[in-house]
Amino acid sequence: MSETQPRPAPGADQGASDVDHEHDILAEIKAEVAQDLADERPPAGGPAYQVASALFVLLVGLAGAWLAYGYGIGSLRRPGPGLWPFIVSCLIVVLAVVLLVVGRHLDDTEKFTRSSLLVAVGAATFVALGFLLPVVGFEIPAVLLGIVWLRFLGGESWRSTIVISVLTTAAFYGLFLYALSVPLPHLIAL
């Protein structure tokens, strides 16, 4: 990357150092990228979200440190089981405090919106499949999960919902039980 070309500096600011100049181009690109991405993101959550997340991190750190202390710190010469987790927990606490102090006005959180409910439903179907799998095998829960995701979360037509759910389940039946021959709980014995 030799600099043989005359540097096309914007304006007459030739005195600016190399670093500053590179800064400009990269910063410009990054700003453009950020702008592009920001167009597609939901609104930021604001200080309440920031404080809540920092407090949660703080809680994790404090709990970790307290528990680790209980496991026995030992000494530097003979480290106990709690020493390393204790060090890490202290680090977490420090970072959480920094976040509480300087992070209040960051804009990197996303507000929960009505469409966040879709996520809750999606997670619930995961849990349901986890409960049903060992009881009734994977076929029925898998078809049901497909129906919920395609019809209710994805807004597909009933026809494509049924076709895709059944075909997907059948494909997984073949893939897991025959191609990979892993023992997956199943109802239909072929």
Binding site: F126, A142, L145, G146, G154, E156, S160, S165, V182, L184
Partner: peptide
């Protein structure tokens, strides 16, 4: 291909995969 169609397929791969 609509993203809505791929979502349940990846979801199933993930759950069945981790179980195996």
């Amino acid at each position: 291909v609509r993203p809505a169609i791929l979502a349940p397929i990846t979801a199933l791969i993930t759950i069945l995969g981790v179980y195996t």
